[in-house]
Design a protein around this nucleic acid. Structure first.
Lengths: 241, 241
DNA sequence: TGCAACATTTTTGTTCAACAATCTTTCGTA
DNA sequence: TACGAAAGATTGTTGAACAAAAATGTTGCA
């Protein structure tokens, strides 16, 4: 006998839940804490993170702090120089342009794939993040809204079916979150995109691929301009300090 | 007064020279040695690398060995599992397909860029690796020929002008070298591609982009089949051991 | 004052020995 | 043979220590 069908969270929704299983190693837990602090804005871009300070704050040995740093470096959240230690990554305007150029390439080619019938897409993969973004926006939680937004675009790229592309795109999304930190008013930035994501999702699902491509390209161009401006402003502020 | 013009190494040629400057930290030097051993075939794919053994062999402490491992993990040369340590990466057939799909995407879109005049290319960037490959082939040095081959394709992708794409493509090239390790007869594999690279380079430089695209696609398809077969064979051999 | 050379302090790079936690292997028993 | 417990090997982590490099502070001089 089968159990009655009941509503289940859409694709990707569970991914945003905090994992219940505690991370196995101290280094990973430390990395998680540091990562959290970066995205919370506690450790601002450009901030140096001395090993001794983190060792004391997290109550772990310096060697373990270093392991955590290595992990975050490979996530491109920290920069490193020999004998100078690590610092929270600060995006440059060139970074922002590079990132959006690649997003344009990966996302529009995903639509091409759908358009030509070489790939298929579960509508829920787009609708779930859109709905999650709208819900977060309604609750005035713009960090969650931003993350849902990124999940929308990641799921679109997933139609390529390439594990390496997904991994690479995840990296780009991580860097986007660093860029979001530079925004002065996240609400003003994110709110319009909630509407646009809904529209793009509908067009893709409805098979109106040309319109979707056009809208997406405009979307990315606009977002790039805004984030680049925010990052530029941030770097001038840093210089003044 | 100007010095007389004299022959200079073409673009990228110097990159293949061993760096004279010794690496600053012991961890980096250790990583270089391990990397070397992998590509020399001394550490074969799938081989576990115990920390204690490397520590003794390289005369460095276990902590430093771990730092070297971290670096190589982020280069995707080593795999890692908690409490199980690291092992030399062994490509799967799925990996090979994924890699060639992405190569196809990046390389043909580079030609598109040239075709539409949105980017330009220094002919030397293609001709130098082609010549280097031919020279290495003539000297029966198929490791160098393989590396020159990869440089040819990297330089093609460079026309995108995206630092992240270049970095990502370098990763793919590194993984290709892991795949080359599975080849039974490198000469039989590489020799035909020396000729094809020359032909593709000529067509690109000559503006015959459609032909170049066709040839390149055929090239990649053929190479994918061969490397996938070699990797498949290698994995069955490993299973038998 | 401005600046260059030197001395001091801080921070990173690395080692070592030790122990806890987790696999792997071995081996005795049912 | 199959199972499971004990023994052994390997990884995860610590803390202290010192060398080496970078950052900082100080002095002396033009």
């Amino acid at each position: 006998m089968t159990r009655p069908e009941r509503a289940r969270p859409g694709s990707g929704a569970l991914a945003s839940l905090p994992s219940l299983a505690p991370l196995p190693t101290a280094a990973e837990r430390a990395a998680a804490v540091i990562r959290e602090n970066i995205f919370e804005g506690k450790f601002q871009p450009g901030t140096a993170l001395p090993e001794a300070a983190l060792s004391q704050a997290l109550q772990i040995s310096r060697n373990t702090v270093r392991e955590a740093f290595r992990a975050l470096m490979s996530e491109h959240l920290l920069t490193y120089e020999t004998h100078k230690g690590v610092a929270v990554r600060a995006l440059t305007v060139a970074d922002v342009h590079d990132i959006y150029t690649l997003r344009q390439m990966f996302e529009t080619s995903a639509i091409d794939l759908l358009d030509s019938g070489r790939a298929e897409l579960d509508p829920a993969a787009l609708l779930e993040p859109v709905a999650a973004g709208e819900a977060a926006g309604a609750a005035d939680d713009w960090v969650t809204a931003g993350t849902a937004n990124l999940r929308f675009h990641s799921n679109l790229v997933s139609v390529h079916g390439s594990t390496r592309m997904e991994e690479f795109f995840r990296r780009l999304m991580t860097e986007m979150r660093l860029g979001f930190l530079a925004l002065e008013d996240p609400k003003t930035f994110h709110a319009p995109y909630l509407v646009q994501n809904r529209s793009i999702a509908d067009k893709i699902i409805g098979g109106r691929y040309d319109e979707a491509r056009t809208d997406l390209t405009a979307y990315l161009e606009q977002a790039k301009t805004e984030v680049a401006a925010a990052v530029a402003k941030q770097s001038t502020v840093d210089d003044d300090r």
